[in-house]
């Protein structure tokens, strides 16, 4: 992370919780290290139960690590509550005081952030409007839908214009339109010079937004880097070729494809070539077999493939079908 100030730093952080009748400690995080630089959007990606929420709780001093160092804005997390004035945090599926109205709750948050009355009232109105809750500020939270609660959670996190925004599963429970709005909001935060760390188990959300990704599984970091770094140079996974008509079995044998490299799909024959060189070698051979190329396109490696590789490797689950030649 050259040339960036580190707003969040975790160094070999481990965490366990007592569980069961004998209160034996069960490990949640194991020597987790990563950092978040200024004005970055960092996606914290991992399957359910990987330890994302625990990590985020540690950053907000809601959980205390067994070992390791956690620094936020260069200070040890939890040492000074004043640091939290510079952070906006939204927990996963936030719960609110249901007897309050949305406006009352935001004003309570404003008081706790130490905002002045004028600044608070202005900010509450602005946040309610920005998050599509302008008409719901006077409604008790008990009557809010799940999506409205999520928006209110975002509003309380952004109310005091924090430098660092930490969001735990911000898209959870939102419809496609709501997810799009949250994505835009996160992008706007970056444009405004803010730093965002958000957790998700939805790869496409992370891929669409993040400058960098930290991937964890079962409490351990399995990958960290920018999208380019993670998917590799160019990122071409294989080249898909579609030929038609389907060659006869005898002619197909003459092409001498590796076993399982091609398959019949309707009236076409689909082949996965390892790279463009191999694709160029295959095209004349298929033409000789009486099949013309209908389409040819490189399938790029995506974050989801990396996620499946890294997480599946740790889990013993099967990996994606390998392309020709691999």
């Amino acid at each position: 992370m050259p040339g960036t100030d580190r707003l969040v730093e975790l160094e070999r952080v481990s965490k366990s919780y007592p569980a069961g009748f004998w209160r034996r400690r069960v490990g949640i995080l194991s020597e987790l290290s990563f950092s978040v630089g200024k004005n970055e959007i960092v996606g914290f990606l991992g399957p359910n139960g990987a330890g994302k929420t625990t990590t985020i709780k540690i950053l907000n001093h809601l959980a205390i690590p067994d070992s390791g160092k956690v620094r936020v804005f260069g200070e040890e997390a939890g040492q000074s509550p004043e640091i939290r004035r510079r952070i906006g945090f939204m927990p996963e599926q936030p719960y609110f005081y249901e007897y309050l109205t949305g406006g009352e709750f935001l004003r309570l948050c404003g008081h706790l952030y130490g905002m002045g009355r004028g600044e608070m009232n202005r900010s509450v109105g602005e946040m309610l409007g920005r998050l599509g809750l302008a008409g719901a500020g006077g409604k008790t939270i008990r009557k809010y839908s799940k999506g409205m609660m999520q928006r209110l959670g975002l509003a309380q996190a952004l109310l005091h214009d924090p430098e660092l925004v930490i969001l735990d599963e911000p898209m959870s429970g939102l419809d496609p339109m709501g997810r799009m709005e949250v994505r835009n909001l996160i992008r706007d935060l970056k444009t405004a010079g803010k730093t965002v760390l958000f957790s998700s188990h939805i790869v496409s959300d992370v891929e669409a937004l993040c400058d960098r990704v930290v991937m964890i599984d079962r409490g351990k970091k399995v990958a960290e880097g920018s999208l380019e770094e993670l998917v590799g140079g160019g990122g071409v996974q294989y080249v898909e070729l579609v030929f038609s008509p389907v060659p006869s079995p005898a002619r197909l044998a003459a092409v001498s494809l590796p076993p399982d490299a091609g398959s019949v799909l309707g009236d076409a024959y689909v082949v996965k070539a390892h790279d463009t060189e191999e694709a160029n070698r295959l095209i004349p051979r298929f033409r000789e077999a009486g099949a013309l190329v209908r389409s040819c396109y490189p399938v790029k490696k995506r974050l989801e493939d990396i996620y499946m590789e890294r997480v599946a490797r740790g889990d013993g689950r099967e990996r994606a079908v390998p392309p020709v030649g691999s």
Partner: peptide
């Protein structure tokens, strides 16, 4: 239990 404490203690509250 209701996890409302997360929203309060994540603010500058001792």
């Amino acid at each position: 239990e209701r996890r409302t404490v997360y929203l309060i203690l994540s603010k500058p509250v001792r």
